[in-house]
Design a binder for these strands. Structure first.
Length: 630
RNA sequence: GCUCACGUAGCUCAGGAGGCAGAGCGUAUCCUUGGUAAGGAUAAGGCCACCGGUUCGAAUCCGGUCGUGAGCUCCA
């Protein structure tokens, strides 16, 4: 923030006037101001001494004000075009803004163009935004008269004592805390992006409104760049790359049930191998539990009461069974099959468990959200005093894994949900334990109130997809319930039975989701160790087919995943294809290479690297695979 | 599950006032044997998602079902 020194002005001068007086680009670029940490309108008059910071589009708060005003312009445009429409809410969000409308008749996406044109007219008029403060009764009266029932509801929900503010631009007035741009003319590059449904106040029992999403930038170039980024993100979409790279598919015969193709399975198995290795090192033992288990077990675990709508059922010999939606009850039974001393704890039982959940049809999303998936699960049974160490250990493990892939993640601590089991005391104890570890480790996190599992609070690790949407992957869930329900115990030093504590945890989360995120993260160009095809051998003419086949066999002998492209095509064509399929290494062999036992090496990112001896290449690639570096 | 939109060849998509189904990529065969991101020719490939209605006649119009997309709700 620049320092413009001290200024003295007539009382009542607005901040905008003040900035104009200072001159330069300031007045033009300013969007809002900040006084004592509070963001305010540039139209605010100044009466006392104060320290002022100017917000531009480069400040997140400035950007928010800019887009929030754009949402008001959107609402005004819609009001102008469709007289009979009730307004919902219209905030600024990441990358833009939206506004919710209750139309008499749903509008179609084509109409967005028309609305956008109307918005441009409003911007051109350069209408000043005026802040109006009223009391509760006045506000309710005003919005009732306008037939804005949602606004009336909002006002009624506001604190008795709070001042209610509205913003007016031309003949459009909206309930709003502000702040806003001084006038609509400040808006430059605007664009409406899409149309979707959204429940009023996010409640599925309430009416569904139509939400219009848009964005706005001060410069046309910025808007173009943003749209360009969206296009680029679409190219990284795992559903598209999954098809192009022949990794997996979905069919109408099994909505939400993915089919993994040979190339997709390679990635999956590599991830599993890595997982097994790291878990062995971290002191886990691997187990496997059945997919179908008796109803009585699910009643005992609480799933029958708390998770039924997400479960699939079947009958065997007239008996009710359920397809497991979680692996925990199975792990409980394994624990129960033996006797444990306190010296045996912590006992870490890991399971690549295939679970099925009946997710609502509208929530399915490629591999990110499916109805059958494999969790890289583990249940840690431990002494109460081992809880914090074990939670910390899992956090370290998650950290290590995500580091290998170069993922940045967001951490959330989720607390007790409404639908849950156990005493308040248990919940408090468990939540405090998770909280402590996060504090001790200095991990930044946000609290997600009421979003815990029905049996305990949890720490979640979220990863971002190509469009910046976040997906929960790793999770650590503390559970005092299951050990209770299943009457688990261990023999302590006092020779008596005691109750162990338990952690449910996953690192990848679900293999399917994690693979989806990896695809988007790498844009399909997997690091060598994960690449379904690591090397493509490309003979230039038929004369080298034999030599090329020998190379291919030689690589295969060392478990290198190689494809021999001896199709009747030119080198350029074959190289292009290997490049499009994101194969890390291409070995081009012509007469020269065949004569001196070399290969011409081409790397996916670096291009032609010239000839190398085959054995040297093999040594290099084996080393790189082992290192798991790019 | 809800709102809106969409469903035509393996993929990307044209077409459609109701009257014999189209392109590019990919695939197959042939020609070409070419040195670092697309050589040429020919051919195969479709119950226009499914079920019903309107009509002499439906890929096209109408209704329903299923699936997909964006978002909401819900969650790894």
């Amino acid at each position: 923030m620049k320092d413009w020194g001290l200024r003295e002005v007539e009382p009542g001068t607005t901040i905008l006037d003040l900035l104009r007086e200072i001159g330069g680009k300031l007045a033009k670029e300013a969007l809002a101001a900040k006084i004592d940490g509070k963001v305010i309108d540039l139209n605010t008059p100044v009466y006392n001494d104060l320290e002022l910071a100017v917000l531009t589009f480069d400040d997140p708060e400035g950007m928010q004000v800019y887009r929030h005003t754009a949402s008001h312009v959107l609402a005004q445009a819609v009001k102008n075009l469709y007289g009979n429409v009730r307004l919902g809410i219209g905030p600024a969000i990441r990358d833009g803004y939206y506004y919710d409308f209750d139309f008499d008749r749903p509008i179609s996406p084509e109409e967005l163009t028309k609305i956008e044109e109307q918005m441009r007219l409003i911007i051109k008029e350069d209408l000043p935004l005026e802040r109006i403060e009223l009391d509760r009764e006045e506000a309710i009266g005003l919005f009732s008269e306008m037939g804005e029932k949602y606004k009336v509801e909002l006002v009624e929900g506001l604190d008795e004592s709070s001042t209610i503010s509205c913003y007016r631009q031309g003949d459009f007035i909206d309930l709003c805390a502000g702040p806003h741009l001084p006038s609509t003319g400040k808006l430059k590059a605007i664009k409406l992006l899409n149309l979707a449904g959204a429940y009023w106040r996010g409640d599925e029992r309430r009416p569904m409104l139509q939400r219009i999403y848009g964005t706005a930038f001060p410069k046309a170039k910025q808007l173009e760049e943003y749209l360009q980024r969206l296009e680029e993100a679409k190219k990284r979409d795992h559903r598209r790359l999954g098809r192009e790279l022949d990794l997996f598919s979905f069919r109408e015969e099994g909505p939400g049930f993915p089919f993994f193709h040979p190339k997709g399975i390679i990635i999956r198995r590599e991830l599993e191998n890595f997982w097994r290795e790291e878990h062995r090192k971290a002191g886990y033992l691997e187990i496997e539990t059945p997919v179908i288990l008796n109803r009585q077990l699910w009643e005992q675990s609480g799933h029958w009461d708390h998770y039924q709508e997400n479960m699939y059922f079947t009958k065997i010999d007239e008996q009710d069974y359920a397809i497991k939606p979680m692996n925990c009850p199975g792990a409980m039974l394994i624990y129960k099959s033996g006797m444990y001393s306190y010296r045996d704890l912590p006992l870490r039982l890991a399971e690549m468990g295939l679970v099925h959940r009946h997710e609502k049809s509208g929530t399915l999303h490629g591999l990110m959200r499916v109805r059958s998936f494999t969790q890289d699960d583990a249940h840690i049974f431990m002494l109460p005093e081992q809880i914090e160490d074990e939670v910390a250990g899992v956090i370290d493990l998650v950290n290590h894994f995500y580091d290998v892939f170069g993922f940045k993640y967001l951490v959330e601590l989720s607390t007790r949900p409404e639908k849950s089991m156990g005493s308040d005391e248990m919940w408090e104890k468990a939540t405090a334990a998770l909280h402590n570890v996060l504090i001790k480790k200095g991990i930044p996190y946000t609290i997600n109130e009421g979003d815990g599992a029905f049996y305990g609070p949890k720490i979640d690790f979220h990863l971002q997809d190509s469009l910046g949407r976040t997906w929960q992957c790793g999770t650590i869930q503390l559970d005092f319930q299951m050990p209770e329900k299943f009457d688990l115990h261990y023999i302590a030093a006092d020779g008596q039975k005691h109750r162990p504590a338990m952690i449910h945890r996953v690192v990848y989360g679900a293999m399917e989701r994690f693979i989806a995120l990896l695809i988007e993260h790498y844009a399909g160009a997997f690091p060598l160790w994960l690449s379904p095809v690591q090397v493509s051998v490309i003979p230039i003419t038929e004369r080298q087919h034999e030599y090329a086949a020998g190379i291919s066999k030689r690589l295969q002998k060392d478990s290198i995943r190689v494809e021999l492209d001896n199709r009747n095509e030119k080198v350029g064509y074959k190289i292009r294809e290997a490049q499009v399929k994101k194969v890390p290494y291409m070995l081009i062999v012509g007469d020269r290479e065949a004569a001196d036992g070399t290969v011409s090496l081409r790397q996916r990112e670096k291009g032609d690297l010239g000839p190398v001896l085959l054995e040297n290449f093999i040594e290099k690639i084996k080393n790189e695979i082992q290192q798991k570096t790019k």
